[in-house]
Write a protein that binds this DNA or RNA. Structure first.
Lengths: 320, 320
DNA sequence: CAGTATAATACTCAAGTTGAGAATAATAAC
DNA sequence: GTTATTATTCTCAACTTGAGTATTATACTG
């Protein structure tokens, strides 16, 4: 007999609060009686009820978190056979069904209040090596040497080292903020994240760098989302989905930095933003800045018709 | 009772031959006895057989076209309820099943020979308004005025005009080669492509601009693929998947132009390619150029570790 | 074989963009 | 008032981009 299919809809709902990117999570117990883990909001497609996948997702998210989503984009569809065993919380597929999951990225404003049971959690607590705002060079820090040890072992050690170098910006390669998924997958293969330990041995020395695990392969989905968002921000004005209608230029910059995991040069950032015609002044002032009051700006919707691809370009630069 | 699901795997297999981008199609008869239409290679995921979606896709493609795919990337998952009625050729879902389709983009070399039943077809014969290589300004040409008429009608006429302007680079907006899907969807809504006529009235004046239809929503999938490929080419060295191991710089340029649908400035293109370190000379010459013999180059794999995001940037320029 | 067409390859140059830093202005806290 | 903190505006050299020109090596034509 043939196994049947279930289609899961997962949401990576991102907001930026207090200069930290956060995602909305719900609690899930992998086995009855087990300890709870953070999971992405998730539900199964109901072929008779949900006219489109995205609508199904919005319904599930409203039910589980109380949020009405605004900006939503499809991320990726995960369908490997070995991922599903671990993805069977409440509301999941029944035994014998193969689960395929379509993941979505949603952006909401920091003001959104989820209902009880759902909670905002810091993205970088789950992917600490992605935050380079306070370090210089590769944010990966202590992971570097551990990865080097790993990649030095076994056959195909050369191909491995090369992958590590490219992904983590080691050995002369440049750090690329968008390679979030590549980095996560290498850490998984190297047994340096807890999810890998569910099947394999776990390297204990990695403890301080590891980051908090999530249910099933949700951290991989999170990595996919962060990588995509970092890319998108450069050529589409999506940051504004995360900001209130008016904001100061520094607020805007901090949100971009939070997502990119990198500090930017202030003067150059401003130049870029207004050469791009992305914002316009409102004339009003914010005088709670801690220094000289700052003008409040708003997003100029008209850019969408003017420029080819308006985003808040991320120079690779640092400096406050 | 609840309807069950079927998961379709679709492949947009692209090659560039004679300076034209082509996709591999198979023939499908929508009803028994109906006339055959070009369709994308397609098969259903077999939950017990296919360990990953991508492997399932590769198997189906091999079976239907005889091709072993190299570069493959997931494109998008299509799951709207109204798309499926039309997607029931041989090998499709049984009645009462809801079909969700995961589409993939594959790049192969022009030399790949498909088996009987599969055929290469010119992408721009299906999306003629996307090829701007011989026109100046918006390649959309005659479609412009038809779209303007359409968008002028009805309520929400203002929002419509704006969408048309942005998508087609009219009214001061810039033509953006990547907005392929937006353009196709507008044409569909406007009743200017045959697929829309399956449900709605079709504007007869659009005949010469319309392009050839494909099965079900396969042309929309093609549009998604072309848009993605045009984007990708700029920041990842994927063009080389479409070229033989050695090639002249003009061959490389022609392939890029074919995909981008735009002519580029020769000197600047060369400068870009070798400043990016994308290629290296082989010392050998091609003397079948029709003019002075050209050096043969090969792709430098090492760029992958050096530069942040090496692609063959597309300046917006023209000129031969 | 001179003349013409075709393409390769190498330059040039002005205009624009980028990365980095410095200078000056307006507020709050002490 | 002095200091800290942030806002806002410049400057400047290095580099990139768009566009065009000049020179060279082939094949083809008559």
């Amino acid at each position: 007999m043939t196994r049947s299919l279930a289609l899961g809809l997962h949401a990576v709902i991102v907001a930026v609060t207090d200069e930290e990117p956060r995602i909305l999570t719900v609690e899930r117990r992998s086995e009855p009686g087990g300890s709870p883990v953070a999971a992405l909001p998730f539900g199964l497609l109901e072929p008779d009820e949900h006219r489109t996948l995205e609508l199904g997702l919005r319904l599930w998210v409203r039910e589980q978190t109380g949020l009405e989503l605004g900006y939503v984009e499809q991320l990726y569809t995960f369908g490997d056979r070995d991922r599903e065993a671990s993805d069977e919380g409440e509301g999941g597929p029944s035994a014998g069904e193969r689960l395929i999951s379509v993941a979505y990225l949603a952006l909401v404003r920091e003001s959104s209040r989820p209902s009880a049971g759902a909670e905002w959690r810091n993205v970088y607590r789950r992917l600490p090596w992605e935050d380079g705002r306070r370090s210089t060079g590769s944010p990966a820090g202590g992971l570097g040497s551990l990865l080097r040890t790993w990649s030095g072992r076994g056959r195909s050690s050369e191909a491995r080292s090369e992958r590590v170098d490219i992904a983590f910006g080691l050995g002369g390669a440049a750090w690329d903020g968008e390679k979030v998924l590549e980095r996560y997958e290498l850490l998984w293969e190297a047994g340096l994240v807890a999810e890998a330990g569910r099947d394999r041995g776990l390297d204990a020395r990695a403890e301080p760098f590891r980051g908090q695990p999530m249910a099933a392969d949700h951290r991989r989905i999170l990595a996919t989302a962060l990588g995509r968002l970092r890319g998108k921000i450069k050529y589409r004005p999506v940051v504004f989905e995360l900001l209130p209608t008016t904001f100061t230029l520094l607020q805007l910059q901090r949100v971009v930095e939070a997502l990119a995991g990198v500090r930017l040069h202030k003067g150059n950032f401003r130049r870029l933003v207004d050469r791009g015609g992305l914002v316009e002044g409102t004339g009003r002032m914010d005088d709670h800045t801690g220094g000289r009051p700052a003008e409040l700006f708003r997003f100029r919707r008209e850019v969408l018709r003017e420029r080819r691809a308006p985003g808040v370009g991320l120079p690779e630069a640092k400096g406050g």
